[in-house]
Design a protein around this nucleic acid. Structure first.
Lengths: 350, 350
DNA sequence: ATGAAAGCGCTAACAA
DNA sequence: TTGTTAGCGCTTTCAT
């Protein structure tokens, strides 16, 4: 029944000034051993802990980072969120979380909500920003960094994987597996990740003089991916792709389910499937999905580096656009290249 | 480049007092139409938005709810988090998120961190509290409610599903499917959900004079569930259960994978599998898992009701312990009762 | 209906 | 090293 304990109360009990108490709880302030001891004892006794909000008001630092996520059914993002949470806790920060729908109108509201909390920075995962929104953040002095999206907006750092190269790896792998009829199930077409993966795919296909055999849009969500798969595969055999690259794992799982249980197709005997992300379920034996890994640990780390560079020295911080290379995880969902075909492929990773 | 805009600046531009500006942005304060208009115009022009932290300091209400989650790989909880997020946004609150490991030592730290942010309430999902921790919250005047755990601690409301009844439903279903050799893969044994589900199972088994055939502990995590399954099923056929109830879906998926890909057992021909939660992947055709549904919408709603009852009227609020009934979702992972056996079972839901 | 003034709990000069 | 003082941006009496 203590109610809230203030530094003032601690000060009185310890017989010192209120600011002395503040110093004791401020790392790197100058206090004598004796003072520190006295104060800590009284604080302990009363159950005192500094009020982070009050500290935030005067210091201008809330130690809160806002995170916006929009595809939360996608296990890749829940994994990412857990990693951000842990890494930020280590730095003494905490996460105010916001789930956004994909429409950018709602986004503006969400971003304003975030700013109202005086966050020290914002991480935006798989969301498209507008320069108006970014301007809003900048004029509030809050750095923003994009995770898994890259956009040409002044002053936002962006961390992605090498999506173009990833798309190429998939194409090369499929081609060397002898596939000629390669289909593609696209994600949300405004997403840079989607576009770059597709560009990579097409570019490698062109190099081999192969045309994309079929294309449908799954929009990164389960239901549309299901329908896209039906459109692509419920047709006479000669019009059916013998391989399909799906723009992310989340959709790829659905695609595999539809292929197996609705189309009665065997994977990889009848059709090869390759995804992108290496989300946890990709490794489950049922799916055993060949996919391009996004190296989430590194991506998270780089995102935080970029963000804290701005937070800690806004003057000198430079805007970064970083793309992390990731390997193709070769598993069982796609036909393997013939042994005599493998040009230097010795490893699981292509 | 506006920097932070204060109510003072808006006041000056509008030619009114700072407190007038405050009133305009305080729902239900007394301001004339003219004043409101003038102020809103100036505010708009400067891009002013009230500072939530400053407001929190004086009002004592931060409009932040702390949420602690510990099993984040479990899709059931990511779904829950999304639902809390949406429902809270509707009430004008936001979520400060904390991921906790299961050890209770770390928990105390985490809870203190949360309190430092002056949250208005705390939701604790699938975490075991101690009364010390709860006392800490109460003396800080912060209500706590347990989600998917129930514990005998004074002053904490708890919302769960009818775990005991759920366990019984599973047993009855398996029994009427003709199973006699029923195994159980337990969750973390300190968890009330785990205990209640198991008690329900055993109680119905006893009523039918059947003994539990095998039991292993999976601790609610993937790796231990995998090992538990091996221990239970890698043995001579006669010592092998013909049905297994797994304490939650997250483990059940792993169990199914091990059964199929390591033990070469068919589901449900060789062994029936039943889970608990009805997490999203349970409905995927590959798993098609028969499971007890936790009605997450209702559970979330009740959790929030309990929490806000405390937040809004701490004097009159009463502590609630609510268990929500949930149906058995009959799918394909467990053998169905013989037609002539079905005593009044007409529906998919048992 | 409006303005003046006090103060939420804290940090950060500034003196001493 | 310590105490004194002045705010951070806001809500909320209290006068008017």
């Amino acid at each position: 029944m203590t109610g809230k304990v203030t530094s003032q109360q601690v000060a009185e009990l310890a017989g010192v000034s209120q600011s002395a108490v503040s110093r004791v709880f401020t790392p790197g302030a100058s206090v004598s051993k004796k003072m520190a001891l006295k104060v800590r004892e009284s604080a302990e006794q009363l159950g005192y802990r500094p009020n982070v909000l009050a500290r935030a008001m005067v210091s201008g630092k809330s130690r809160i980072i806002g995170i916006v996520v929009s595809y939360f059914e996608n296990q890749f993002y829940t994994e990412i969120l857990a990693k951000f949470s842990e890494a930020l806790k280590e730095r003494g920060y905490h996460i105010l979380i916001f789930m956004a729908s994909v429409e950018s109108h709602a986004l503006e509201e969400v971003m304003n909500d975030i700013l109202d909390y005086q966050v020290d920075g914002i991480i935006v995962a798989s969301v498209n920003l507008t320069s108006d929104i970014v301007d809003g953040c900048h004029s509030a002095g809050v750095p923003v960094v994009l995770f898994n999206r890259s956009q040409d907006i002044a002053g936002v750092s962006a961390i992605t994987s090498e999506n173009f190269a990833g798309g190429r790896k998939v194409a090369d792998f499929l081609l060397s597996g002898g596939h000629k009829k390669i289909g593609y199930i696209a994600g949300w077409e405004q997403a840079s990740t989607q576009r770059d993966r597709e560009r990579g795919l097409i570019s490698a296909l062109e190099d081999a003089n192969v045309e994309m055999f079929a294309r449908e849009v799954g929009n990164f969500n389960t239901e549309e991916a299901r329908e896209a798969t039906r459109r692509m595969f419920q047709c006479p055999e000669e019009k059916r792709p013998d391989a399909v690259f799906v723009a992310n794992d989340h959709m790829a799982l659905t695609v595999m389910d539809v292929l197996r249980y609705e189309c009665n197709l065997r994977i990889p005997e009848d059709v090869s499937v390759v995804g992108y992300d290496d989300a946890p379920p990709a490794a489950w034996p049922t799916y055993n999905l060949t996919t391009v890994r996004q190296r989430s640990n590194i991506m998270v780390e780089e995102t935080l580096n970029a963000l804290f560079e701005w937070i800690e020295s806004p003057e000198t911080a430079r805007c970064r656009t970083i793309a992390i290379d990731g390997p193709l995880m070769v598993r069982g969902s796609a036909r393997l290249p013939e042994a005599n075909n493998t040009q230097g492929i010795t490893d699981e990773r292509f």
